[in-house]
Every structure is written in structure tokens, then in C-alpha cells.
């Protein structure tokens, strides 16, 4: 059991009064304001909010890809100041390495960190299999469909065995059918290999389908508006009355934007 700076047990990632401003010639824009949150081990947390409300900026700050203007992010009690292998990211635009095969992409982390060949082969085999890409190990990325590409993205992040996985609208580039399929898939993958996941989406159905907890953000600047613990049994049914009423309630609380 690890104890973080806030004293609570088994918090994997937390932040305190984090704000982020961007300045340009036209002045400064506050994108996130005074956000404090904690994510527990193996929790599936969804950051949910309208359009361009600053969810991605929040994720960048939490993962260390960007720094906060004020406030602090802790990962297992240590300050987060830069990206690192403890915090994996699945990107909206996938950001795969096109010159590498599926195997090369998935094994990139373990290879970069100096694991022996037998180890990274075994790890990448396991996670390629887990995301359902067995048989595509030697395919190049450009030959894959959108859904398959994001499976590679998920396997690559998983294969590095991070403490927390950030997923930034990972399915938003997929068509509607593939998106439903990938929502089921991420649930299957997560229940096989439990990890702490911070998942960003602006799709209410997706949020209710996957989350243990939904953190509802306001429109720009993003603040925490409300939190919902979702304890519907899994696998969830998009059309069950409980699902629909939750979906309705959260939708009503969401800020409307153009």
C-alpha cells in the first residue's frame, strides 16, 4: 500500500487546485480552473464535459505532457513534472509510429526501457493478443483500419505497464458501429487486465457505459461541476431504464454550448 501526500491510501494519481492558462497576444485564456481530484487504484474514471471545455488540457497536465499554471499533480506521492513511463497515454489521433509494425509499436516502451528481447517479445505477444490483434504482429500501421489502429494504441500503452492509463477521446475518430464495439472491447480488456484508467469523452452514452465514476466538467474554463458514481452492473445495457435515466440526468446537468 502506498500513501500519497494527501494521506489517503492507494491513490494512484491526484491533483490539487490545478489551473491552466494560455497566453497569447490577445490576452490570457483560463482553460482549467481550480480542479482537485483523486483517482484510486484500478478505478475507471471518466472526465466528461462539453465540446472544447479543456478536458484534453486537463489530461495533458495530469499525465505530465503539459505543466499547470498553478497547483500540483501527484502520481504515487511524487510530483508530476514531465511525461514518464508510469503514466501511459492513448491519444485521440492515435499517434502510432508508421514505420514500425504492430509489434514494433506495442513493444516500443519495453524496448526503449532496455528490457531483454525475450521479455519484450513475451509482453508484446500478450498484449497484442489481449486487444485481439493476433496474426497482425507484422502488419504496418497504414494497412490497418481505424479500430485496429486504436487497438494498437491501447496495447502500446498497456504493454509499458504504467500505473495509470490516460485515454483522450480514444474512439472519437471511429465510425459509430466501431465505436460501440470498441466500448465493449475496452471493458473486456479492462476486466481482464485491471488498470487505473482516466478516460476522456464528450459522449454521454460512452461515459455511462464504461465509468466507475464520472467527473462532470463545466464549459471553459473547466471546473468540476458534479461527480457521479456509476454502480450499474457490467456488462451494461445501453437501453436499460437505469442506464437511460442516468444518461438523462447527467445530460441535463451538462453545460450547453454551440
Amino acid at each position: 500500500m502506498r500513501v500519497d501526500s494527501t494521506g489517503s491510501v492507494d491513490t494512484v494519481i491526484s491533483c490539487q487546485r490545478v489551473s491552466k492558462e494560455f497566453s497569447s497576444k490577445r490576452g490570457t485564456t483560463k482553460v482549467i480552473e481550480n480542479i482537485s481530484l483523486e483517482v484510486k487504484r484500478n478505478e475507471f474514471v471518466v472526465l466528461f464535459g462539453p465540446g472544447q471545455c479543456g478536458k484534453t488540457t486537463l489530461m495533458n497536465v495530469l499525465s505530465g505532457l503539459d505543466t499547470a499554471t498553478s497547483g500540483t499533480v501527484y502520481s504515487l506521492g511524487e510530483k508530476v513534472v514531465r511525461p514518464g513511463a508510469e503514466r501511459g497515454v492513448v491519444f485521440q489521433s492515435m499517434a502510432l509510429f508508421p514505420w514500425l509494425t504492430v509489434r514494433g509499436n506495442v513493444a516500443y516502451g519495453p524496448k526503449a526501457r532496455g528490457f531483454e528481447k525475450s521479455v519484450w517479445i513475451e509482453k508484446s505477444d500478450y498484449y497484442i493478443n489481449l486487444v485481439g490483434l493476433k496474426g497482425f504482429e507484422d502488419s504496418y500501421i497504414n494497412k490497418l483500419s481505424g479500430g485496429m489502429k486504436q487497438r494498437v494504441g491501447i496495447a502500446r500503452a498497456y504493454c509499458n505497464e504504467p500505473e495509470v492509463l490516460f485515454m483522450d477521446e480514444p474512439f472519437s475518430a471511429l465510425d459509430a458501429q466501431t465505436r460501440y464495439l470498441m466500448q465493449e472491447e475496452i471493458m473486456r480488456i479492462w476486466s481482464t487486465e485491471k488498470r487505473t484508467i482516466v478516460f476522456i469523452t464528450n459522449n454521454i452514452e460512452e461515459a455511462v457505459y464504461v465509468a466507475d465514476r464520472i467527473i462532470l466538467l463545466t464549459n471553459c474554463p473547466a471546473k468540476i461541476k458534479k461527480e457521479y458514481h456509476i454502480d450499474l452492473p457490467r456488462p451494461r445495457d445501453y437501453t436499460s431504464p437505469e442506464f437511460l435515466s442516468l444518461r438523462d440526468e447527467i445530460s441535463k446537468n451538462m453545460d450547453r454550448t454551440l
Partner: peptide
């Protein structure tokens, strides 16, 4: 692509490793 560099950092690659592999 700067995103690929961020990706390399996120996966724990050193600067030298990223130069060679990205």
C-alpha cells in the same frame, strides 16, 4: 511530429533512443 516525441517520452524513451527510433 511533436506528438510522436511526446509519445516517446510517455513510453519512457531517452532522448538518444528517440533520436534513433523516431
Amino acid at each position: 511530429d511533436p506528438l510522436l516525441i511526446k509519445c516517446g517520452e510517455m513510453l519512457g524513451a531517452s532522448k538518444k533512443h528517440m533520436f534513433r527510433t523516431i
